[in-house]
């Protein structure tokens, strides 16, 4: 049963809202317009940069830094996210440039990034969701290496999170992926190029302008996954608005993953729910108008991720 927020608690720190890195490949102007709009939004933290595919280049690092400057001037905490799958020497070069800039924090999305950040003595980085942090020993290690926040792997449950945090000597700031199609897998192969019978090296940038990838359906027509270049996402939208009371107990930051439209309205909905202006159940209902597929929240409840679980 969904409980109302217990209001009177004094040990709760105000929960922050973060906008995760843009996982799709949008035209340059659309991307710039999107972030100009975000600068005016009430989101607290923004992660920037290309995390999915090194071939995507509508914005280069210098462009991202410029966007970062505008967002920082608008009062946002801005971080640059590193690519999740590093393959080539030029991928490493891009990674080193992100680590070398000192103006903005960094989200480390593979252990190579962790090594470089630790070696640079940086203490302002975030352990990203692809690092597979599942236990206190591993998280403690990353804290020692300089991580000041971590993003839980989406496949981890709320109960496992509670157990992990109970085992920490030094309480970390925890960020939970709370909205968006779930990033489920990365590959060396590009499934978008494959769909068009193209090879990745000559992909013609077919993913450009697909606002949220391509839906993959079962042979019964049921939406199942989303093809986003080398990344595979869920077709359903992970939506933890109905689970805010449990989230409040453990998470300090909630991540909203950018979607094709209405991202700013989503930020407002989360904000209203956090402020108690909307009950979790009402917020969930309210958000349905901005979802392009059915909601799911199974991972948070320790169940198959595809499920939409409501406790009896």
């Amino acid at each position: 049963m969904l409980r109302a927020n217990g209001g009177g608690k004094t040990n709760e720190i105000a929960m922050k809202l973060a906008l995760g890195p843009l996982l799709y490949y949008w035209p340059r102007q659309a991307t710039l317009d999107f972030y100009a709009d975000i600068a005016d939004s009430t989101v607290d933290i923004v992660y920037l940069g290309e995390t999915v595919c090194s071939r995507r280049h509508e914005l280069r690092l210098d462009d991202w830094l410029e966007v970062a400057g505008v967002l920082a001037a608008a009062g946002k905490e801005v971080l640059l996210s590193t690519q999740a799958l590093i393959e080539s020497e030029s991928d490493l070069k891009a990674l080193r440039r992100i680590v070398a800039q000192g103006e903005f924090g960094v989200e480390a999305n593979d252990m190579g990034a962790v090594r470089l950040l630790a070696a640079a003595g940086r203490r302002d980085w975030v352990a990203g969701p692809t690092l597979n942090v599942f236990n206190p020993a591993t998280l403690g290690l990353l804290q020692d290496a300089g991580a000041r926040r971590w993003v839980m792997a989406p496949e981890m449950s709320g109960a496992a999170l509670a157990d992990l945090l109970a085992g920490m000597e030094q309480t970390p700031q925890t960020e939970v992926f709370a909205w968006g199609r779930l990033p489920l897998a990365h590959s060396a192969r590009c499934f978008t190029a494959r769909h068009f019978n193209l090879q990745k090296d000559t992909c013609e940038f077919r993913c450009l302008g697909m606002s949220e990838g391509i839906v993959l359906r079962t042979r019964e027509g049921e939406p199942f996954l989303t093809l986003n270049g080398v990344q595979t996402q869920s077709a359903r939208v992970y939506n933890l608005l109905g689970d805010l009371p449990a989230l409040r107990a453990h998470a300090g930051v909630l991540r909203i993953s950018p979607q094709g439209e209405h991202t700013r309205a989503l930020v407002d909905t989360f904000r209203a729910a956090l402020a108690g202006e909307l009950s979790p159940a009402a917020a969930l209902e309210h958000s349905r108008q901005w979802m392009n597929d059915a909601p799911c929240n199974g991972f948070w409840h320790g169940r198959p991720g595809v499920e939409q679980y409501v406790a009896a």
């Binding site: 999740a84 799958l85 692809t130 597979n132 599942f134 792997a153 989406p154 496949e155 981890m156 779930l182 489920l184 897998a185 990365h186 590959s187 060396a188 192969r189 996954l225 595979t232 869920s234 199974g298 991972f299 320790g302 169940r303 198959p304 991720g305 595809v306």
Partner: peptide, 21 residues
């Protein structure tokens, strides 16, 4: 495995059981 090993939650998404955990 066509996906990067250790970076695939497809099975977890469909069944709740994953290679990782």
């Amino acid at each position: 495995c066509v996906m990067v090993e250790g970076r695939c939650a497809l099975s977890a998404y469909a069944t709740g059981e994953s290679p990782n955990c």
